[in-house]
Design a protein around this nucleic acid. Structure first.
Lengths: 246, 246
DNA sequence: CGGCGTTTTGAGTGCTTTCAAGACCGGTGG
DNA sequence: CCACCGGTCTTGAAAGCACTCAAAACGCCG
């Protein structure tokens, strides 16, 4: 089976599994909705499938749509005047993209993998929020969660040495996977060293050196492209927390 | 008029001005509410006044209350295992403190100045949110705004050199003041060098050196304790953006 | 097989930190 | 009223960690 077929197959399974009505089985935006409401939401929304590296929207675009990521992984980035970029977060299945109080999106959203998304026009979204208080509450909860995660990231970037940041990133991957109820030993990691560096406020060389160091210590393996296996999560967590000796 | 009297006077004015019913004239949580609803909210909430350096709540405390800052300035901090702290944000009049999806507060909230707050029990808060959709929407908007601000801060901490971070901090002070509709030349800045350093992911010495440099360039003055006057906001903004020559 | 993007590794530089000491300021008690 | 004290701020010198620049190895895709 070549990679393309594998992708198509897993994609088909995902669609059958979660999104006939926008995701009744995932932990996404629509989690608390009953079947009847889901039907209405499904009627208002469109499902779109995009290949890896697609731009979902760009910083400064009119924020006229809201997306719910059904499957696939996205990165959110802000561009600085000097050309450097900062990754403000990665998004996983179940996460909402592009809901903002502003008229324009405050960051780019780019797919790291092929992905399926639910797309809603902003006015329709606002109507739905008014009509279904549970939906609005859910969105508020997701927003608060995201805020807490971003604050956590601020601590990581602001106060931890390079290797601890990389360790924290790996731990966050594990947690994102656990939230989605998966338990495979092999983690999907479609981000490049540069992506990770831009997330952690480091250079790609420093990230590479950290991975090399972890590998030499027997903490992890990368048996195939864009996959990691964490062999000593305890050690990695300890380094991330700064709970190591020294 | 001595400084103490000035403080008392402005404090009295603030209370008269904004909080008979929890803040009809401020840009706070209750901004979109009509007078009748405000009465009910006021009935459910208590107003408390606390001196500078009070702890409003601590990381790990049961998140049983939500606060709205009426006047005064607070800092939110997370403590790391190694004893260092990261300031995740400062809060100004109109901001909400302690609304979280978790059972426990994810950070400490400490007052930098004397302050007046609206205090609401969490169950009452939840009832109000259900009863007044406009209130819930407002909270969602505030949350999204905060999220965007925190992402902005992530860019600052992750990708900018020391002086640019300090410059960005000063710009954010100006913007916080503008949101509150004030236009005084003299900014209130009750945070110490250490607070600023913990916010920007720097050491207090580096922050001090940056202030000294700005002073020498004629960009700012500190005519009295805990006050700054920005003499060349354009230059400061340019440095913050990285829009300077070099 | 060749080309291109990603990753790795090395060497040297530099910015920020660390460590240290002194100055400043406000509050307090003699 | 003034001296003292603690906390904050400033300044200097040295060290260290991550960055920059550079080149080679790797792996994927056409």
């Amino acid at each position: 089976m070549n990679p393309l077929d594998a992708t198509r197959l897993s994609h088909a399974l995902q669609v059958d599994e979660v999104c006939a009505t926008c995701g009744s089985r995932v932990a996404g935006m629509c989690k608390p909705m009953d079947p009847a409401s889901l039907d209405e939401i499904a009627a208002e929304s469109e499902r779109v499938t995009l290949p890896a590296r697609s731009i979902v929207f760009r910083e400064g675009d009119n924020a006229s749509r809201v997306f719910s990521l059904i499957n696939g992984i996205a990165k959110l980035t802000r561009l600085l005047p000097d050309g450097k970029q900062q990754v403000v977060g990665f998004r996983f299945p179940g996460d909402v993209l592009g809901y903002t109080g502003r008229r324009e999106y405050p960051f780019d959203a780019e797919l790291l993998t092929g992905a399926t998304l639910c797309r809603l026009d902003r006015p329709k979204m606002d109507k739905l929020l008014t009509r279904y208080p549970a939906l609005e509450r859910r969105l508020l909860d997701l927003c608060v969660q995201e805020l807490t995660a971003t604050q956590e990231q601020l601590v990581t970037v602001g106060r931890r040495p390079a290797e601890a940041r990389v360790a924290a990133f790996l731990v966050s991957l594990v947690e994102a996977r656990r939230r989605r109820g998966k338990v495979e030993r092999l983690l999907e990691m479609p981000m490049t060293r540069a992506d990770i560096a831009d997330f952690l406020g480091l250079t790609l060389e420093t990230v590479s050196r950290s991975f090399t160091a972890f590998r030499k210590r027997g903490w992890l393996r990368e048996p195939e492209h864009q996959k990691v296996e964490l062999l000593d999560l305890a050690a990695i967590s300890a380094l991330a927390d700064g709970t190591n000796e020294n």
